[in-house]
């Protein structure tokens, strides 16, 4: 009994409520006339779209930089890659690889600068990260208007200047992963490529965290004094983690775009950090502890709620409260993580 309580405590009450809520949704769904298999397809699709952005939280949490509220910076590198790839005009799967290649240098440079900045503000990372994200989104909004892009798929038709707010990835890398290696069993369709793509990067991160550098990074996050004593260059480890997070953010948004079908510019990336942050927290991470399992569980739970609540609610009470519920649940989860006594002083 005590052990059960212990496990329950470790699991955390909010997480338990969310899990039960999701299970309840799946149980109610057939009675509300919603096909369970279609729901599962939807949840898995969203999982494939979003999981890498959630994965982008992991390196920074490990090195003690806290939750990466500065994810928009990574997203912006991804957007730069995406727009450049479309600008070159090469269609098909190659464009996806190009987008990844183009976004990488941006992610490394931006991540490096962002990491250097965060090294100078130890202790206040999360707040500053939030505002670094916001300012970079606002700055890039100006840039999207004045950068000399010329591809007719992206530029406003009537002025010939400035990028559109949303750009379709149709013809470039739309569903490039979603439709490859997909398994169809009745209405259930699982996109293996998307999941493998995530699994590949999740494995790389997992393996990295078990290398010498990776353990050093974890040491920096969990016990900086000890790390310093054993001769680890703290600032370098932190910068490295930030670069990794930023790059994963860039990859994440590209993966998101191929599933969603649109590149969202301007204010699009503004609040994209929040769902990722709350997903990893729902998955059981805390401000200074996270692993790949947290990412997987968290993304499934979060996306499950996001996709299931509207349809079930709508068919049951004809009122779409889902958006409001989502705001309360996801932000409440972040708040819960921030106010837990067990979190480090950061």
């Amino acid at each position: 009994m005590d052990r059960a309580m212990e496990i329950l405590k470790g699991f955390g009450l909010p997480r338990l409520i969310i899990t039960l809520f999701l299970v309840a949704l799946f149980i109610i769904a057939p009675f509300a006339g919603i096909s369970v298999t279609a729901s599962i397809t939807d949840v898995l699709g969203r999982f494939g779209q979003n999981a890498i952005m959630v994965l982008a939280m992991v390196p920074m949490i490990h090195s003690g930089c806290g939750l990466n509220f500065g994810l928009p910076l990574g997203i912006i590198s991804g957007l730069l890659g995406a727009t450049l790839a479309i600008e070159t005009g090469i269609h098909g799967p190659v464009s996806f690889i190009l987008a990844i290649l183009y976004s990488t240098p941006f992610a490394i440079i931006l991540g490096w600068g962002y990491g250097k900045l965060l090294n100078r503000v130890k202790g206040g990372e999360m707040m500053i990260a939030t505002y670094v994200g916001f300012s970079s989104v606002a700055f890039m909004s100006i840039m999207w208007l004045i950068l000399p892009y010329s591809s007719p798929t992206m530029v406003w038709g009537y002025t010939g200047q400035g990028l559109r707010t949303t750009i379709s990835t149709e013809g470039f890398y739309y569903h490039i992963l979603r439709d490859t290696l997909s398994i169809n069993i009745g209405h259930l369709s699982i996109s293996l490529a998307e999941i493998l793509f995530f699994a590949f990067f999740a494995f790389i991160i997992w393996a990295f965290l078990h290398t010498k550098t990776g353990t050093a990074m974890t040491a920096v996050g969990s016990n900086p004094v000890f790390a310093r004593a054993s001769g680890i260059n703290i600032d370098r480890q932190r910068t490295l983690s930030v670069i990794m997070s930023t790059w994963l953010g860039a990859l994440g948004i590209l993966c998101y775009q191929q599933g969603y079908g649109f590149v969202q510019l301007y204010q699009g990336p503004m609040y994209m950090a929040m769902p990722a942050v709350s997903a990893i927290l729902i998955g059981g991470a805390s401000v200074n502890k996270a692993n790949i399992t947290n990412v997987i569980i968290g993304t499934i739970l979060y996306q499950g709620i996001v996709s299931m609540t509207p349809s079930v609610m709508n068919s049951l009470i004809h009122t779409d409260m889902s958006e409001v519920l989502r705001i309360i649940v996801s932000n409440g989860m972040i708040l819960y993580a921030l106010t837990r006594k067990t979190g480090a002083s950061r």
Partner: peptide
């Protein structure tokens, strides 16, 4: 209003 909320959360109408 639901649409307004969704839009606001997507960051539109902010700037």
């Amino acid at each position: 209003p639901e649409e307004a909320i969704a839009e606001q959360d997507a960051g539109f109408g902010d700037m």
